[in-house]
Amino acid sequence: MPLWWPLLLASLLFAIGVYGVLVRRNAVLVLMGVELMLNAVNINLVAFDAHLRDVLHGGQTFALFIIVIAAAEVGLALAIVLLVFRSHGHIDVDRLRGLADRDPPTEPSGGDGVTAHSALTGPGRTR
């Protein structure tokens, strides 16, 4: 088997993951794109581990580590998604514009941006 087969597969999976991250509107679906990208990297690691006959099995070990990190990342990300859902009522990424550089609102009751800001930056509001 030529070495470039798994490498090409990994590249394409990575590009698909990038596409998913860029176009998906729902935050959970965006996370799925991230998972695809992580798996693409894992394929690369395992393929080179097999090719190089690594005595330390660095490729496979790193693939395991990445799986663990991905699990942690998903846990954190889902907590954030739920928080956003609680404060906004939706998790559409393209409607969360709290980072936009706008003129300060003239009235305190703002739209999404204001509430997201107050929700996500306010540990002082924890109880």
Partner: peptide, 29 residues
């Protein structure tokens, strides 16, 4: 977004294919 994804795919694919053409992955041993 699709254009960007295709760009990334083309870039990565060109790199790995050009870099490892003719290298065999020997899985026997």
């Amino acid at each position: 977004a699709a254009a960007v994804a295709v760009l990334v795919a083309a870039l990565l694919a060109t790199t790995v294919v050009a870099g490892f053409t003719g290298v065999r992955l020997d899985l026997d041993g």
